[in-house]
Design a protein around this nucleic acid. Structure first.
Length: 260
DNA sequence: ATGTCACACCGTGTGTGA
């Protein structure tokens, strides 16, 4: 099974690239973040024409998450929102079951400035995520949590640690919470599982030619239950989709796994 | 160099969020 996570930075603006992706890569499941679309405007028909069913949690011009599954795969028991999240109207979490796996996707709050109310909201969102994945673990259902978690796991995931001194995405508070999500959820970071020593990024600022200069962060993740980890064959970042016409500032991240 | 992008708004630029 191929599962991909991709922050598309507006599904309407990115629809041509998303349809291109579905056509050329034909993932089984595509987890989307920052769809930035009203629920009534979600492109259900275009995606169905491409052979994909969707569930989504949409809140208009900001945030928004969705799960796409290839036709023929049952996309069941979808649930929008994260229990315990502070801003329940922001559309940052949705989950559904596909192929016996509980697929969860998150678009974590940016946090803006360390110490701000937005930063506190970000830490609270991580805490709610940890509680949710612990609950799912207790249920015994295999889980994949994918999304833009807006935090680097460690310094290898940052192009220049000095450039991020005092900034969000690199603080111990954020990183400790990511580790707690991984530990409490019984999860593994699929990219690190396959690439224990590499430095590759999933996001590059649009400005200053950062992509072409190789200046990015690894802030998008696919976290898989331990029960699935043995089946992981491949995990990689599809950098080509950060190139070309009107790209997102994030590249898709894909895991290929054999189901237990 | 806060240098890009996307969205809303009666709009042909400005504010907001990333």
């Amino acid at each position: 099974m191929d599962v991909v996570t991709w922050n598309v930075n507006s599904l309407r603006a990115r629809l041509p690239r998303v349809l291109e992706f579905l056509e050329t890569e034909s993932p089984d499941v595509l987890l989307l973040q920052e769809t930035k679309v009203e629920a009534a405007d979600f492109p259900v028909d275009e995606l169905r024409a491409a052979g994909y069913e969707a569930v989504h949690h949409s809140a208009g011009r900001w945030a928004g998450v969705a799960i796409l599954a290839r036709e023929g795969l049952a996309l069941a028991d979808d649930s929008a929102g994260l229990p315990g999240e502070v801003q329940a109207d922001e559309a940052r979490w949705v989950e559904a079951t596909v192929g016996g796996i509980r697929m969860c996707t998150a678009y974590v709050t940016n946090g803006r400035e360390v110490g701000s109310a937005w930063f506190d909201e970000k830490l609270a969102f991580f805490d709610a995520m940890a509680a949710r994945v612990a609950h799912l673990r207790a249920d015994g259902t295999p889980v994949i949590v994918g999304g833009d978690l807006n935090v680097t796991r460690d310094d290898r995931d940052v192009y220049d640690v000095a450039a991020f001194e005092g900034e969000t995405h690199v603080t111990p508070q954020e990183r400790e919470r990511l580790e707690t999500i991984i530990t409490d959820g019984g999860l593994l970071d699929a990219y690190r599982l396959v690439h224990p020593d590499d430095q590759q990024f999933t996001w590059w600022d649009y400005r200053q030619g950062h992509f072409h200069r190789g200046l990015g962060l690894r802030i998008d993740y696919l976290l898989v239950s331990e029960a699935l980890a043995g089946g992981v064959r491949e995990c990689g970042i599809l950098r080509d989709f950060r190139k070309g016409t009107k790209p997102s500032d994030h590249a898709p991240l894909r895991v290929r796994l054999d189901l237990p």
